[in-house]
């Protein structure tokens, strides 16, 4: 009896996951088709909306990223360089820095910050639009919501994620230089050279992969979940929990795949 229920639950869970991923993929494809291949491509209004979204979800995170990058960047680099100096492996500092910063720290930390800031804002934005019947307004005006509402958020999210992660790496390298200059009596060019020479194609691919997909899911998952909900404000909180959990699991999955590259 329990076994049958257990199997049923697994089946239900699997079907739900398959449906979810299928829905997400279709939703994403529709957004990119509407955004990139429609007649209204690069319409001044959608460009304005993209810039506004970058300002809303990206620019406002710069302060937080600066503080977090300074504190965590310094902590990571400081601990790492201390360990390497104690082990007598100072020549490996560049490789270790690159590995930690580019492949793990930058996508992971900025991704988390980005989820806290952008995902919740995007979700509330879309959920309120849905419950206020705003999409009816767009339909009445023959304006494609995929192009005017969803596409700007996705593009802004990917661009913001890329800029913030690069900024995080830059700040961390400056931080690491400050630390290492005390510990090893070295210069910025030496640190920079070590980092650049240690940089491998796979690191860059892993970085771009993680940035792109984290940026993508931070916009897609909240929007998809918000559009799934019923037209009632009561559902917003329930759906938001669902959206954040889905986002977190996918985020971990992307970071994990990123490490395998």
């Amino acid at each position: 009896m329990y076994f049958i229920k257990f199997v049923e639950n697994i089946g239900k869970w699997t079907v739900n996951i398959i449906l979810f991923f299928t829905g997400i993929v279709i939703f994403t494809i529709k957004i990119f088709i509407a955004g990139l291949f429609s007649k209204a491509f690069l319409n001044p209004v959608s460009v304005t909306f993209i810039l506004r979204q970058i300002n809303f979800i990206g620019v406002e995170l710069i302060k937080t990223t600066t503080i977090v990058a300074m504190i965590l960047g310094l902590a990571i680099v400081g601990t790492l360089s201390n360990i390497l100096i104690n082990l007598g492996a100072t020549t490996s500092i560049g490789v270790a820095l690159t590995g930690i910063l580019v492949k793990i720290a930058a996508p992971f930390i900025t991704g988390l910050l980005f989820i806290f800031r952008a995902a919740s804002a995007i979700f509330i934005d879309i959920a309120l639009m849905k419950s206020n019947n705003d999409f009816k307004t767009l339909q009445s005006m023959d304006i494609d919501e995929y192009q005017m509402v969803f596409f700007p958020r996705v593009i802004a999210s990917i661009i913001s994620m890329f800029i913030l992660s690069s900024y995080f790496i830059l700040l961390s390298i400056i931080g690491s230089f400050t630390l290492l200059s005390f510990q090893l009596n070295t210069t910025l060019s030496v640190v920079g050279q070590q980092v650049v020479s240690a940089l491998q194609v796979s690191d860059v691919i892993s970085f771009i992969f993680q940035i792109f997909f984290i940026g993508l899911i931070v916009a897609i998952i909240p929007m998809y979940t918000a559009m799934e909900q019923k037209r009632s404000q009561l559902w917003i909180i329930v759906s938001m929990n669902k959206s954040m959990l889905r986002l977190f699991y996918l985020f971990i999955l992307i970071v994990f795949i990123g490490q395998l590259i």
Partner: peptide, 8 residues
């Protein structure tokens, strides 16, 4: 009233 102003 059926076609509201967009809140965002």
């Amino acid at each position: 009233e059926e076609i509201p102003l967009m809140s965002a």
